[in-house]
């Protein structure tokens, strides 16, 4: 079936089988390989993208269900090719990544949580960050610097 959606601001359309996952559509058909797959049970969060502005696990969603949706992947987070999103900068400046495999999912989850907290006027405390990361697993960093990165990135993001 033909599935069309907007990915990182561009209209795209691909002919895929009905059982194609959104992550397969993104990785295999659009060749945007920043979105990763680290588990089979929807727990690691390496595949997190934004679907219509909300963080979702692209491994746990069919491409067909995303027909017509606006998707943002890590490749489309920055305003332009030469720019970096403040959260991307924060991960670099706080050494919030090592092997880099979980990083795209972490960054997409991080920007989602900051947007939600800011729009609800809630304080994003360290405890809140750790709780919000429940669906993202990192094996390298012990999370210490990821939590620091997100707090730093949040302070540089203004979404409301």
């Amino acid at each position: 079936m033909k599935i069309a959606m907007t990915v990182n601001g561009k209209s795209v359309s691909r002919d895929v089988t009905d059982n194609t996952l959104l992550v397969e559509y993104i990785r295999d058909h659009l060749r945007l390989t920043g979105t990763h797959v680290g588990c089979d049970t929807s727990q690691c969060g390496a595949c997190v993208v934004h679907v219509d502005g909300q963080a979702m696990k692209s491994c746990t969603m069919l491409a067909a269900s995303a027909e017509g949706a606006a998707i943002t992947t890590v490749e489309g987070l920055a305003k332009s090719k030469d720019d970096l999103h403040p959260m991307q900068v924060a991960f670099k400046e706080n050494h919030g990544l090592q092997c880099g495999f979980c990083t795209p999912g972490m960054i997409m989850t991080a920007t989602d949580m900051v947007t939600r907290y800011q729009s609800q006027g809630k304080e994003l405390t360290e405890d809140a960050i750790r709780h919000e990361l429940e669906g993202n697993i990192c094996r390298c960093t012990g999370y210490h610097n990821i939590v620091k990165s997100i707090a730093d990135g949040a302070s540089k993001m203004t979404t409301v």
């Binding site: 390989t33 920043g34 990763h36 991960f91 880099g100 495999f101 795209p104």
Partner: peptide, 18 residues
């Protein structure tokens, strides 16, 4: 700061499955 980070934070890392 790490020289390798830019490709990872922008989704441009190149892992085997990519």
């Amino acid at each position: 700061l790490r020289k390798e980070d830019k490709r990872f934070i922008t989704g441009k890392g190149r892992y085997t499955d990519d």
